[in-house]
Design a protein around this nucleic acid. Sequence first.
DNA 1: CTTGACTCTGGACCCGGGTCCAGACTGCAC
DNA 2: GTGCAGTCTGGACCCGGGTCCAGAGTCAAG
Lengths: 134, 134
Amino acid sequence: MATFGIGQLAQRAGVAIDTVRYYERNGLLPPSGRLASGYRRYGDIELKRLRFIRRAKVLGFTLEDIRGLLSLSDEQNVAEVRTAAQGKLADIEQRIAELERVRDGLRRLIAACPGHGRADACPILNALTQEETR
Amino acid sequence: MATFGIGQLAQRAGVAIDTVRYYERNGLLPPSGRLASGYRRYGDIELKRLRFIRRAKVLGFTLEDIRGLLSLSDEQNVAEVRTAAQGKLADIEQRIAELERVRDGLRRLIAACPGHGRADACPILNALTQEETR
DNA sequence: CTTGACTCTGGACCCGGGTCCAGACTGCAC
DNA sequence: GTGCAGTCTGGACCCGGGTCCAGAGTCAAG
């Protein structure tokens, strides 16, 4: 399999070289090997892994969360992997539910706001300053 | 209206006193007034505002986002308020959509995983190490 | 009054997640 | 074999969001 250096890897995944090394220090992305010189070498698996890390980050997972997700693949026990995945799924579902609550509240406020007139007739302002956004 | 001190406020909202002062420094939560001694005084409006800040934080808004949300109430123009609220709504909807994508991928993997047997038969592991989680 | 709890300010420190050197070595093309 | 881009390590620094002092002043009950 073709291997490439850290610069290539970083560039293909759209992250900084320092970030790659930072992830390595934190146990998220070991190189597949090293040259005699010490230069890190990576392959497509690492590239995919790095992209996975980035996507997970965007979605608000911490590096620790992600380490957990990735370490699933080190597990021996398929049943444990499944359980861990279910736990993550539950997290995500809860976050979605919370965001939906906020979304619905915001939608109602927007719908109720005339978009003109006196400020104290605007339900959005009232919600922020006097009530909770629900 | 009854007013109370920073300790009361913090305790009722379930945050640390230092956090309240930190929010003040960052323009999120000015006290309604001060005693001659310099002691901050707060009322129910501040309490609600603080609770709002906390809830928004839990949902992943940065303090800057929240400052934006709160500053809506300083706007003169009701139309602008409405527009800003719509922008926030769009953000939230996008985050929900991304999380749903992840949720669906994870659900499919879990459904496809037998929960036992050889590790390389587990689609969850394969997805993490070889494909992207979708 | 005194005492103990509360609050003030300013500044140091912490953690997560990076980012940016400096100084030295390496790989490759010419 | 020289030159330049690429890479190495270690450590300093940055930002957001707090958290924790120290030292001094304040409030209220007894």
